[in-house]
Write a protein that binds this DNA or RNA. Structure first.
Lengths: 191, 191, 191, 191
DNA sequence: GATGAATGAGCGTTCATTCAT
DNA sequence: CATGAATGAACGCTCATTCAT
């Protein structure tokens, strides 16, 4: 007889519904019902709908790091580390399509844009692993001579695009294609 | 004393507001006001809000082709043609940031997903130029051995990511950076 | 090359549409279109929608009298005259179901109630034939001892109900049934 | 301190307003205000305006049966039973004029027509008492030789017409007139 | 704490009517 | 005169949020 994890249930319900129906199609009452709680209860855990949306994003983002960092060797050569992180990230999105679709939806919404702007201004970011890696690569002149922001675009742009098309069912990625996709990303950023 | 182009005014107002406020934040009444017309007038030109959103997309899309095709030499070597189209496209997005942001928003919404799905199924598409180019490149084995869909991702993924960051003000692209960005896209797809 | 009878066209279109779609479902623009005139034109002939609705009623009502009075012998015995008028009226409704349905709809709407109230107050009425007949019948004590209003109800209540069910397709009236229906009406009013 | 019966308040407000103003003239906001509830509250109890209109009808209809069946003797002679039900029905309409007017309005609207059509097709109906009675009367050859539908018209046509004129204030029915009216209905149907 | 009924501002859309052409 | 594009008030309905229980 566990005490029910209401916050978790609400986040799970929100993820399902926002992903399936978009932000538009998922009213609070529906989320509450799917989570098996009363409508008012959500407001005990999240100040408002907007806060719920943002917290869900943060929650999902945090779960990525343990996954992609498993087996990550800080001391491996730069290219290996890039391929490791890229491959893991793409695999993660493929394995957790709801997570991917939610993050995409979030990024392409007023929430996501404000969120990202805050992040850029704050200098800090959760993607410290990537930032560190890319800064190192830039310093060692392994990467093309671009501002960090652009390098991120070159590396993650294709990765996310491929993930999106997989999730939407426009392609079926197998292991080999995943690896070769990340190698193409590498081609884009490597000097 | 020109007769006022009401359809155009409405599209322009919709573009401004949808871009600034998102689909959420731009009620029909506001669009009408910004366009300087009565609320009901919009419905003489667009059957519904959804139709307005889709028509605006098509309208913006159609303006791209003349721009990027100017000076395009069908007979030039493959790489040149790729660079030409890519560069023009990126420049276009930089020059018309509202257009870019709207198209992004559209793509990442139920509208855009349905739209794209229709396009894929219909085989036909407005991106015939790109499709033709890539099919040729694939046939000549200039491009990596990937399905067309993935090649598109590898080429446009970074391009769009870079455009987005420019438009949001996270980087300032100059001419050289534009060219080098497209070359990086080329690196991603070329064999 | 007749001059087009715009007023008539509008009335005809209004009859068709109000009958098929109800007052709700027939906007002025649709009536105009069906009549083959501009939307504004209707207002040259009818001050407003309400006026159009009332004028259409009067127009239809007026056409009934010539039909039912054809062959009517003022000098015939009372019962014959009653049967003549009743039968003719029922036949008329069966022959012109649009007319019947419109009149019914009109009667059972705020328009019709106001209209009827005015008529009752004004003493005068278009149904002078019926009024005259019934007053005579009352005076001769052929009819039951009821106020005129009630006698009308007893006579026309069943008649209209039968017409309604025929028009809605719940019964198919043949000649014999029409005659016997009117005889039943007679049974209701006769002393 | 009773818990307020909101559903009932809404139905009552709807009855008042629909009766006074017609379906046209009674917007949801007005009904809500008259019922003393918020506009959205109505939708907790009735899925839509149309559903409210239909439920109100059913609600009113159901209240009639206990009233008219009080003191009804299944074993009494046919004529007595007819007079009992008819008289009770007419009295009910006179006592509850809002109910009568609402039902009339309902019957003479797309709602009522669809409703009645469903009833006819479904064979079943709430008017089982009447149907049973009339079927018996037809079998015993007490009633005229007509289809059931017509017999209903002959009996209820005058009854409803009289009720209507009373409710609209065109006559004042006293006890004797009520009885004699129903006897006239009987004359219309009896063989 | 948890609930879910109640709220009411706000939305997309319609349509009778007007009026410049 | 006839037109039909333009208007804008009004409608039915939704849903984030509150609060009495």
């Amino acid at each position: 007889m566990m005490k029910p994890d209401r916050r978790g249930e609400i986040l799970k319900a929100a993820l399902d519904l926002f992903t399936e129906q978009g932000f538009h199609g998922a009213p609070m009452a529906l989320i509450a019902m799917q989570a098996g709680v009363g409508a008012g209860t959500i407001y005990r855990y999240f100040e408002s709908r907007d806060v719920l949306i943002r917290e869900l994003y943060k929650d999902l983002e945090e779960r990525i790091y343990p996954y992609i960092l498993a087996g990550y060797a800080e001391t491996a050569p730069f290219r290996s580390r890039f391929l490791h992180l890229g491959t893991k990230l793409l695999r993660y999105f493929i394995e957790y399509p709801l997570c991917f679709r939610y993050m995409e939806q979030f990024h392409n919404s007023p929430y996501g844009i404000a969120f990202r702007r805050d992040k850029m201004l704050g200098k800090e970011g959760h993607c410290d692993v990537f930032r560190e890696l890319f800064e190192q690569g830039a310093a060692q002149q392994v990467l093309k001579d671009f501002p960090l922001v652009i390098l991120f675009c070159l590396a993650f742009g294709p990765l996310l695009a491929v993930a999106r098309d997989h999730v939407l069912g426009f392609v079926q990625l197998d292991d080999s294609m995943i690896d070769r996709t990340i190698e193409a990303c590498w081609d884009a950023v490597k000097r």
